[in-house]
Design a protein around this nucleic acid. Structure first.
Lengths: 222, 222, 222, 222
DNA sequence: TATGAATGAGAGTTCATTCAT
DNA sequence: AATGAATGAACTCTCATTCAT
């Protein structure tokens, strides 16, 4: 076992293979972003400069590739949440989290797409799991400071982000920001209480499940 | 082409043809709603009780059918806007418009799907065109009455609806309503002004254009 | 519903479709015979002069095509058994049945191949079901007449035919016949009793199940 | 190529190489047996605990591996024939040979499979060559002793074994044995003479050649 | 006009075989 | 010599669209 292997945590991962692995994920991000999740693996592989079969050596199937890609995004999002939670001013933290999240989704339209597909469900669960802690803490501080309305919970942020992801396409001077502001305004305290209850984690997870029945189970021919 | 056709201004259309036309649109709505836009034309035709080839006699291709379907939705939406504008209390009118719109999109998941595809662009333009009038009027009254923040315009409602469409999948007691309330709260007056400007109609139209390059021009193989 | 439809028992089967259907089965027989069951559907379709997709309009998948083909063979085999049972001399009937069966398998090597695959199981069941009656009757007459050994049952004929199918490839003057004679000799009376019992229908059916685990369930990609 | 290689008459083969060679053949036997000849080389290599590429260092291609495997079986079969020829009672010898052969084929379903493929032709020739002697001798003694019908030759045993191989799948109390008995009965003397002549060695070899044209020449893609 | 049938162009996936380490 | 990785060529099956009745 080489040093680099120990470093990556994978046994005997050859340099070129590692490169291709990442290349494929990057290509997936780009191509998914450009053409949506319906992009063909062939396209992605070509984009990565490898043969399709090579893609299959690295990922069991298209689902897995999407999942892997999503998994990397989860990492970023968690980092974002933690960074936001570390912000001294909780309102600034919240603003930062939402703005950066939208930016992330804008830069990577595939993200919204993936979330919409069943692929996402699994990793969304992981994401929510790891993200709820820091965010809840952030909101708590915000509530105490009177900066955030008291009836908003961390799980509310999933639908909120999902909503914002819908307008990532909007281009124009400060345009998506306008709606971030709108929503942030709605999160301020001193307003009529929100109806209903914050979604459970289970329900929050379902935001991603608008997807096509046919695509829900891997193994489908298409 | 017969004389009567010339007389009516439309090519002579037999009664059953007209019936099939509508049947297909209805079937499209149902099937798109159930399976998303990836549903096959075969499915739709079968659902309508006709043959695929018949569908092609009525619509040049799948895009056209989707467009036609969207066109009918436009009608409903315009009606909705007019109904809202007629409401004595402008805030109630706005609330009604947003709630009913979401309901329409929830009942018909395809709508959100279609909007997301390039299909929508053309008809979205028409929609915005016809809807802006009543809504602007509604908002004007709201602003005057001090019920609505002064810096919101009718064109802002397009992104807002698009955002809400993203969470139609959310199920739970009063769940989508929770976020309608959040957004409505953000529309109230007495808050920090929104950054930027309301989108132009052109920009509002682009909300729908996140879509796949490949699908943008009809005639593509897939 | 046309007259021809009534005749074929299928609703509105168009002439060309019916032709293609049979062509495909014939092509399947030929191509399966030439290349074994691993022949591609593409090959078969090309051989039939149609597009693969057309093959898929007629048969849900490769399995179904093989099954359909086998089904036609079953018909022939049953006819053969009935013809043999009608023979006045039971020994002659038995001889005829075995000889003709072998001939059928020789002319159509695919038959043996299909039997060997899991495809066959289902239709083999049907075959055995419909064939056992006449053959048992034939053997009964043979036993009474002292022409056939008393400890042979109709279900013994399945393994016997399967054995013979193994040598259909043998070419030479009267060559496969030599082994038919050998087996017929073994069926004569006045010899040491055979060990064990005749197979149950269930067991007889299993002759066909030597096949590859992977191929046993339809839907496998290969 | 080293000196020691020249000395041994074989290219220098490291100990582990020789071990891998045998391991691969053993793995081939097992995997072919379990999954039929369609098993992938990857599977076989993994089963042998080596990499596919290593398999290719030892065998030019899949065909060669199968051939090599068959070659080893030939050895066993020859041993079997010699053992049978050494039996004092010729009938017992014949019975033993047939029973053990069937057992060998049952234990190793791949054998029948390989025989059925073109792979076998070459080695089958070798087999027949080396096996005919002992078996002819055995049959001669049987004929003299009046235990075996006079018109059966050693080359008849090839088709006979091939026939029996067809029912190796039969499971049930004493089930394959029942048909061995049937055939042995047919080999007894005092019956109508068999039609035709025993196959020439050339013809006997052809039993194995029912196989797929595509696969006959190594180098085919599949 | 409406239908049943046909089709070309993929899409996802697998595998025998070769290349680079 | 042996490995991990890469590849090209298939193969099965699907679907939007067109053709022939």
């Amino acid at each position: 076992m080489s040093i680099s292997a120990a470093a990556t945590g994978r046994p005997h991962q050859r340099a070129d293979a590692a490169r291709n692995h990442q290349r494929l994920i990057d290509a997936a991000a780009e191509v998914f972003a450009a053409r949506g999740l319906d992009a063909t693996l062939d396209d992605i592989a070509r984009h990565a400069g490898v043969n399709v079969a090579t893609a299959y050596r690295h990922f069991a199937n298209k689902h897995e590739l999407a999942r892997e890609f999503l998994s990397q995004c989860v990492g970023q999002a968690v980092a974002l949440a933690e960074q936001a939670a570390a912000e001294p001013d909780p309102w600034q933290g919240l603003t930062l989290f939402i703005e950066q999240s939208l930016q992330m989704m804008t830069a990577n339209r595939a993200l919204g797409d993936v979330l919409t597909h069943a692929y996402g469900a699994e990793h969304l669960a992981e994401l929510l799991d790891r993200i709820t802690g820091p965010l809840e803490q952030l909101l708590a501080r915000g509530r105490e400071a009177g900066a955030v309305r008291p009836d908003v919970a961390a799980t509310d942020l999933a639908p909120i982000l999902e909503m914002l992801s819908a307008i990532t396409g909007l281009s124009g001077p400060g345009l998506p920001g306008r709606y971030i502001a709108l929503i942030l305004a709605g999160l301020r305290p001193g307003q009529e209480p929100l109806p209903g209850q914050p979604p459970t984690e289970e329900q929050a997870r379902q935001v991603a499940l608008r997807s096509k029945p046919k695509d829900s189970s891997p193994g489908g021919t298409r």
